[in-house]
Design a protein around this nucleic acid. Structure first.
Length: 416
DNA sequence: TCTGGGGTCCTAGGACCC
DNA sequence: TCTGGGGTCCTAGGACCC
């Protein structure tokens, strides 16, 4: 039996742990540049604020109901996520960390799921302050569906493919199923498949023929045949990217180069953090998709002769790419850098026969920067090419402190 | 005026191998 | 008139997830 632990309104719940005054109030967390809603408290959901809504479209609701709008604080959410996962891993052997706010567990089939779920919910809440919804089922897909019910009911829930759960499946839209997105929902409805029950009762071979192996697996999983095992070992990442939108459009090449240097710096530090190197960099820049301009997407792929995670090497290539495609007529809205084709940095790499490696890399300097930034906070030291102050490029008007990861931001409590 | 960031997997088609 | 069979690898594009 699988269980899915899902943290309720996770980003909002993280904020509330350190801001108890936000309990029972409508709260939303915004994406970078305070652009879109990426998390909502139950009170905010009840006001009809949709997920992903741009802030400017819900201003009237924010004003009328005093909705608290917080800038995102991923440093905090990442750390709170670790705490929740640590609690699980201390108690159970079979834990798959699925996302920042979800984990799968596996239990013996005859577990008293209601009791175990209650206990687990209380324990996580006590240790971390984060409320969870817990769903159980014989497959991951059913456990996921059960967690949606659990969230609605406020108690753990269980679903299997037996007839006693047909009612639940009949009242669950096909769009709620894990792996069925907008496109598939539309297409399935054209075939008369509206509910989870409808999808459960079609022929798996039909699903395979008309769609693909993913949909076939979903059908099998809805019927209680597990096709998706628990993955306990975290495979190394296959790509890492750093991308950001600007608060206002940029037309200055130097500023773009400073921005891409920042992202290249972050990228190289991330690579070193997970002991990986890259052989292929992908740099891109685009204008805003929301303005009435013809869409522009500049890109450049750089294939390196040797794998690297050196800051100076990566920044060098990234800035070259900007120089290569920069067009002064374009109002740039978003740029990014991605590393693909990653290699294990602890393994020796194949040397190049004819090409002399450029003497750009300075692993000693990289190491010092990593150490300082880890100890004193991100951005304490950075290469000069990142520019001195371009903070205005990203807006975060209402960001809460990094309560759990920065000594300077510790919460102060006054006792009377 | 203002619209996020970071990932994975699958498929089809092309090019190539023996 | 008729022209094999069995593979791998790479890429671009699409769909999905949180």
């Amino acid at each position: 039996m699988f269980a899915l632990i899902d943290c309720n309104n996770f980003f909002v719940s993280c904020e509330r742990v350190f801001r108890p005054d936000l309990e029972h109030k409508p709260v939303v967390v915004l994406s970078s540049n305070d652009g879109c809603v990426i998390a909502r408290s139950n009170e905010a959901k009840l006001l009809g604020i949709p997920m992903s809504a741009p802030l400017f479209e819900i201003r009237h609701l924010v004003k009328a109901y005093g909705v608290e709008t917080l800038s995102c604080n991923f440093e905090l959410y990442g750390d709170m996520s670790h705490r929740v996962m640590n609690v699980l891993q201390q108690q159970y052997k079979n834990v798959e960390v699925y996302s920042i706010d979800e984990a799968f567990l596996m239990f013996d089939a005859n577990l008293d799921w209601a009791q175990e779920g209650e206990k687990l919910h209380r324990h996580i809440l006590q240790c971390t302050g984060i409320p969870t919804s817990i769903g159980f089922g014989p497959t991951k897909t059913l456990a996921k569906l059960a967690s949606i019910q659990a969230k609605a009911l406020g108690v753990p829930y269980y679903i299997d493919g037996t007839s006693s759960y047909h009612h639940t499946l009949k009242t669950t839209s096909v769009s709620k199923i894990w792996g069925i997105g907008a496109k598939l929902t539309k297409s399935l409805k054209q075939h008369g498949i509206y509910s989870a029950y409808d999808l459960m009762t079609i022929e798996p071979s039909w699903a395979r023929r008309n769609y693909n192996i993913i949909v076939e697996r979903i059908v099998q999983e809805l019927n209680g045949f597990s096709c998706m095992p628990l993955t306990l070992i975290q495979e190394p990442k296959k790509s890492i990217q750093i991308t950001r939108s600007f608060f206002k459009p940029i037309r200055d090449e130097e500023i773009l180069k400073q921005a891409i240097a920042r992202y290249g710096f972050r990228l190289s530090a991330k690579l070193r953090e997970v002991s990986q190197k890259t052989t292929t960099l992908f740099v891109y820049a685009q204008n805003s998709p929301f303005r009435n301009e013809t869409s522009v997407f500049h890109q450049r792929t750089i294939v390196l002769t040797e794998p690297t995670n050196s800051t100076s090497t990566i920044i060098g290539h990234a800035q070259e790419a900007i120089k290569y495609f920069f067009d002064p007529k374009v109002a740039y809205h978003k740029i990014g850098i991605m590393a693909v084709d990653l290699r294990d940095a602890t393994q020796p790499s194949t040397r190049v026969l004819f090409d002399k490696p450029k003497a750009l890399a300075r692993p000693d300097i990289d190491k010092v920067m990593d150490t300082l930034n880890k100890r004193f906070g991100l951005g304490t030291v950075r290469p000069l090419s990142c520019g001195e102050s371009i903070e205005w490029m990203n807006k975060r008007d209402n960001k809460t402190p990094a309560y759990t990861t920065n000594w300077k931001n510790l919460v102060q409590v006054k006792a009377k």
